[in-house]
């Protein structure tokens, strides 16, 4: 087991470098130079060359890449080109919000998706099944950005209520903190739950046809016991994979939710950095998101071993 984890972690090193090259070159390919924007739109400086040198953009591209990567290895993401603040400090403030939003969304995804999937399988091809599936596909189909807009606009129109609140760090005021992210988290959780429902239903249908389920029934166990103790436990293992696949989607969704609900998180930070061509900032946020996804994939694979003793890490 330990050996497996170590090997997987080592295998992440080349992937990390591939991703860093992709991210670095993708950011440089974006048309529109940050120095041009700064000088022409904001008169940040008189001399472009001087500004370029000040920002470290006068170096050749390979040198810039090496400076950047060696910085990351030492835990230094550099400074924002616009504000001059270190990106580490910014992330320390903004990551907690995105993580909190992500964790609550995923928890809601599980709490909504799995029970509906179980219900839908147990009552296969009944009105309950059709309702449950329509509900979950509807959640998938409603665009999250539109849903969020409606959730803000309609209460304001009908009852003059403002549903978006300011966010504060969780340990400062847990209630206000959770209150600010609750609505975006529900919206993301609903939209992500559909895949989980689909997988749960499919696996439950397969498991319910197994011999051991018939054995459990014939030894006189009640329906609830059969489903909860014998079926669900075996059906949920592949659902963990599907849940892992939701992580990149939730991170993408946080970009949209944070901009609509005006939350100062990493996602909106990233969107701004694209528009402002803030290279170090965009590189840092993209890297953080990608590494995060890589680690959750690893955790999903490890969790498999605990959930299913048949899986051996050779």
């Amino acid at each position: 087991m330990t050996e497996y984890v170590v090997r997987r972690l080592l295998a992440m090193i080349p992937t990390f470098f591939i991703v860093s090259v992709i991210v670095f070159s993708m950011v440089r390919l974006i048309p529109g130079d940050v120095v041009d924007i700064m000088v022409e739109n904001y008169q940040y400086a008189d001399d472009k060359e001087q500004l370029r040198e000040q920002l470290g953009l006068n170096e050749s591209v390979p040198v810039q890449y090496l400076t950047w990567v060696s910085g990351i290895v030492r835990g230094d993401f550099g400074e924002s080109l616009w504000t001059g603040r270190t990106i580490m400090d910014e992330l320390r403030y903004r990551l907690p919000l995105t993580l909190q939003l992500g964790v609550v969304s995923l928890a809601l995804t599980v709490l909504i998706g799995i029970p509906i999937g179980i219900l839908s399988a147990v009552k296969q091809d009944t009105a309950a099944d059709y309702t449950a599936r329509s509900f979950s596909i509807l959640n998938l189909a409603i665009p999250d950005f539109w849903f969020a807009t409606m959730v803000i606009v309609l209460p304001a129109l009908w009852w003059q209520v403002n549903v978006s609140q300011g966010w504060v760090p969780f340990f400062e005021n847990p209630f206000q903190s959770m209150g600010a992210i609750l609505l975006p988290a529900i919206i993301l959780g609903l939209s992500r739950s559909a895949s989980v429902t689909r997988m749960t239903r499919a696996m439950m249908l397969e498991v319910l046809r197994q011999d051991y389920i018939r054995t459990a029934q014939s030894k006189g166990l009640g329906a609830f016991q059969v489903v909860s103790r014998h079926a669900v436990r075996n059906a949920l293992i592949p659902v963990v994979t599907v849940l892992g696949l939701q992580v990149p989607a939730v991170l993408g969704g946080s970009i949209i939710m944070e901009s609509i609900f005006n939350l100062p998180g990493t996602g909106r930070f990233m969107l701004d950095s694209i528009q402002q061509r803030d290279y170090p900032l965009l590189q840092a946020t993209t890297m953080v998101f990608t590494v995060f996804v890589m680690f959750t994939n690893l955790m999903v694979d490890i969790a498999y071993g605990f959930l299913d003793p048949r899986i051996r890490y050779a």
Binding site: I18, V27, L245, P248, L251, I255, I274, L282, F289, T290
Partner: peptide, 13 residues
Amino acid sequence: AWIAIPWLVFLLA
């Protein structure tokens, strides 16, 4: 690698 990069981030860039 494609699956690891959050899709919206890639699409935006």
